[in-house]
């Protein structure tokens, strides 16, 4: 079975259905992409390059803005996207950032 789920055709991220080790393969429109790090269940990975300032799309809708250039296969989370409403409160040690 696929390790990643694309929730909407417009999305530029996919969601891990279980803990995915580094190098796990994501099926993407541009061809297969390997994850650059380990990714925890229900966390997100870019399935194509996302430029700084570009919207991150999940459920077909924007969930925040990329704060840096994000490479295909990179973990997309609190370290590289930002809310357009309120800053996200998180504890660094608990946020599941294996690549931060």
């Amino acid at each position: 079975m696929n390790t990643f789920l694309k929730l909407h055709r417009d999305d530029n991220v996919q969601v891990a259905l279980r803990m995915a080790p580094k190098g796990s393969i994501i099926k993407a429109e541009g061809g297969p992409v390997g994850t650059l790090t380990e990714v925890a269940m229900a966390h997100k990975v870019a399935d194509r390059a996302i430029s700084e300032g570009e919207m991150v799309i999940k459920y077909g809708m924007p969930i925040g803005v990329a704060t840096v250039d994000i490479a295909p296969g990179a973990h997309v989370h609190v370290h590289n996207i930002a809310s357009r409403y309120t800053a996200t409160h998180y504890r660094e040690e608990d946020a599941g950032l294996t690549d931060a």
């Binding site: 969930i63 409403y85 409160h89 998180y90 504890r91």
Partner: peptide, 23 residues
């Protein structure tokens, strides 16, 4: 509106948390 545990569970922003309910 957003607890630290939401980030642990993979949610990155308040928009993403709300969208989970909105979908």
């Amino acid at each position: 509106s957003f607890a630290a545990g939401n980030a642990t569970g993979g949610l990155s922003t308040i928009e993403e948390k709300s969208l989970g309910a909105y979908v």
